[in-house]
Amino acid sequence: MKKLLLTLITLSLTFLNASDLKVFENLKGTLNIAGGTAHIKCEKEAIKNIMRKYPDITISIAGGGSGIGIKQVSSKIIDLANSGRKPTQKEIENGDLKLFRFAIDGIGVIVNPKLNIDSLTTKQLQDIFSGKITNFKELGLSNAPINLYTRDESSATRKVFWKRALKKSPISNKARVVSSNAAMKTAISKDENAIGIISLGVANDSVKLLNINGVKPTVENINNDSYNVARGLYLLSSGEPSKLASAYISYLRSNEGAKIVSKYGFIPINE
């Protein structure tokens, strides 16, 4: 009787515990991922879940920016690349890239939380980022120089922001350049007169997100297209992905993966 009860309990637990991680059943090996820095936090949690359940699987993730990821996966240095933009046709042809979008991420303008400003118009953004406006007093605030921060040229965050928010208006060559979303967050949070750009999934209370043309950068506004400074988050493989890579992509697009993606401020999608 006791044995029957135990078996029934174990079976029911197994049934209840049937998870999306089962795609990794019977798989082992190493998966190397690198590229976009916006993806890192949410993918790290997914990787932790996978490696905890399947110790024979080792997955490493690194940053470097979307440009680095595309380059490395095309040269087959890594198995999967994280990219915050759709690769160009030339990049797709050169690297025989296969695209797998798993989320949508917004890009926001951030300032130090001590700054008394909540919204900027497109014209103001263009003037600030081009270097025409160099002092906060020109925006009606106290007299303080604007310390402009941007990302390196291979960054997808920068590219998409330049296209969608700045409408391809130039970015000043006096802007300070940082090489990741996390570095941007640190720089802005330590500088009271800073203004920069960041992936919405990486932003937290140490920085203040600004509205653009009165529209708040939220998941709801991205979904209803009122906030259009957004981009897809992609996983890229060179040629058909390996079994392990395919399993990883499936996991991120599964229900569990979608929960992790949402938790970090992105919009999960599956296409």
Binding site: A144, P145, N147, R176, A187, K190, D191, E192, N193
Partner: peptide, 18 residues
């Protein structure tokens, strides 16, 4: 330096963080 020196110097010269 990013956490100690940069905020220190920006207190005296706000335009020169990095």
């Amino acid at each position: 330096a990013l956490f100690i020196f940069v905020p220190f110097i920006s207190y005296f010269k706000p335009s020169s963080t990095l």
